[in-house]
Design a protein around this nucleic acid. Sequence first.
DNA 1: AACATTTGAGGACATTTGTCCTTTACGACA
DNA 2: TGTCGTAAAGGACAAATGTCCTCAAATGTT
Lengths: 190, 190
Amino acid sequence: MDKFKQFLKNIAAITDHELADTLSFFTEKNLQKGDFFVKSGKVCQYAAFIMKGTLRTFYINDKAQETTSCFCIENNFTTSYKSFILQQPSNLFIQAIEYTELLVIDYNNLQKLYKSSPTWQNIGRTVAEQEYIVMEKYASVMNNETAKEKYLRLLREQPNVIKKAPVEDIASYLGVTRRTLSRIRQQISK
Amino acid sequence: MDKFKQFLKNIAAITDHELADTLSFFTEKNLQKGDFFVKSGKVCQYAAFIMKGTLRTFYINDKAQETTSCFCIENNFTTSYKSFILQQPSNLFIQAIEYTELLVIDYNNLQKLYKSSPTWQNIGRTVAEQEYIVMEKYASVMNNETAKEKYLRLLREQPNVIKKAPVEDIASYLGVTRRTLSRIRQQISK
DNA sequence: AACATTTGAGGACATTTGTCCTTTACGACA
DNA sequence: TGTCGTAAAGGACAAATGTCCTCAAATGTT
């Protein structure tokens, strides 16, 4: 819980009093390995702060291939953002790849927080801006780096993901096939 | 000017009175072919609505290659969004690829609008959310579609860009070399 | 422990894309 | 109108990646 308080304080100046008043809007939710937090086709009702564990965000494209867009680890915020904002069916799946503990808030409660407090309005806008920046960085990385560079980045920035996620998912995150990932690992091990 | 009014009205309910009060914050700016609206390394001071013309957004990566991330056409909003929000040096260039007419607002004036009116706060947040969604779509397209599919999409969604932009830029937008773009065009012409 | 099932590594070949280069087409300007 | 310069097309070969496959190691099950 302290992790979440710190996460909020890093975004906006929020008093302990305000925090105490608003934490009741959040509830704990635990996921077993393989459980879905969001499913494609359904409206994403919740936004979550990850206290423990790892989630994989992916979608299924026209060619019926799964593409992993993101691995989300603890101390981060996650949701199917577009679906959540617009309250429209999600095109993303979000699935726990290990046992995961979340702190979630539903859409209506978040709207209440926005209305009740300028601090929360500020948090909402800042999160939107941050999500934009994260997405821009993602797009930039995906466009500019080779699969090998992306793999090395993952190894550097999220080493646990490499240990926890299956090869299939890592390959789809890098935008290559398993075979190519195998070759990349071979190159690196030399 | 009417185009801009319509653009705003599509985002949020804004009265003609409010519009009249706030339009004075915007100024016209014209660019000749090749002129830069934003340069990498400098803080982006302005956000712009494109009344006429076409702009290309690009960056230069580690390997000193230009990568085109976006072609912006009339009736759209453009800026180096990250730089503008954070008031930090831009990593993007935005350049007119033909004669272009803009309606611009500087950062400080926009902050004044935010403070003076909840309607403008609402517009600001909605634009942030829209920019997120556009970026997500962009990342999704770039990851899932082949260069040929992306070319066909460009042909469908922004046919004038294909006529106006040089091969070099279109190729970098598609994430391939000129040689591959040449092959794609050859395939399509059959 | 023994067996079945899943998962990762890597061989062989086909296909795609990049690199380097030449040729062709087009527009600017004297 | 000629010619100069720039931009696009495309040939030839090399390199990278995908497809299909097998084998070995790890994991799960009874």
